[in-house]
Write a protein that binds this DNA or RNA. Sequence first.
DNA 1: GTCAGACCGGTGTCTCGTGT
DNA 2: ACACGAGACACCGGTCTGAC
Length: 248
Amino acid sequence: MGTNNIISREPMVIKQIKCACEQCDAFEHSVFRSLTADESRLFEDSKICNLYKKGQVIFHEGNRPQGLYCVKDGNVKVFKTGVDGREQIVRMAKKGDVLGYRTLIGEEAYTATAAAIVDSQICLIEKQVFFDILRTNNEMLWSFLHLLANELRNAENFIADLAQKTVRERLAEVLLLLKNKYGCQPSDNQTINVVLTRDELASIVGTATETLIRHLSDFKDEQVIEVKGRKIKILNTKKLFHIANINL
DNA sequence: GTCAGACCGGTGTCTCGTGT
DNA sequence: ACACGAGACACCGGTCTGAC
């Protein structure tokens, strides 16, 4: 079902809003936290903050990058489309995360497509301003190097997992990763704080939707998780680590 | 309010690979 | 050759959403 998601082909932007980096909730935890007041001003003058509806595409695979995207609010999936039309989610981005910096630095076209999975606010920072600041701000440069290293490590792990782990093991690992990245709802400290369709979850795990549903049912039967609609509550984290073959 | 179409989650059945 | 498990294809029924 990965092929029939509501993905608008054109990156039609609904609304532009005005926002200041220093007043942004995501600023303190982002790679831009080392920006000086002058640099922040440069950023603000050059950037555009857009509102994207759920399903709307932020950038398309194959297009040339116009600048750097920063998630001010919301959640974004980055995916590649295979020859059979099926999508494979290669990365998830949340508030404070940046998108498209690798292609920008590498001076290449986007190697994947990014789309909002919930209504999201995304800032676009002008390419030249980003490069200018990267050349003068060593701390920010290091933050981006650190980010690149992390992404490379995650990609290596993902390739190894795809080759060596079963769907059951990968699903357990993905649930733990989602819990780690998005946290849990404060009400019970168990329900993962991100809502994904079965399609999207299957696309992260790298399997078909029905296989994913079967394994989710197995986890429910084993009382490892509880499922309410699209919300997943982790009941037994230790067992999930065991299933995922991750040593604590 | 009704209806059609799209979307979504779930199930039955089949294929394929692997171990014995 | 056979059994078994993993995973995919095809299909069904429920829900949502937008047009009228």
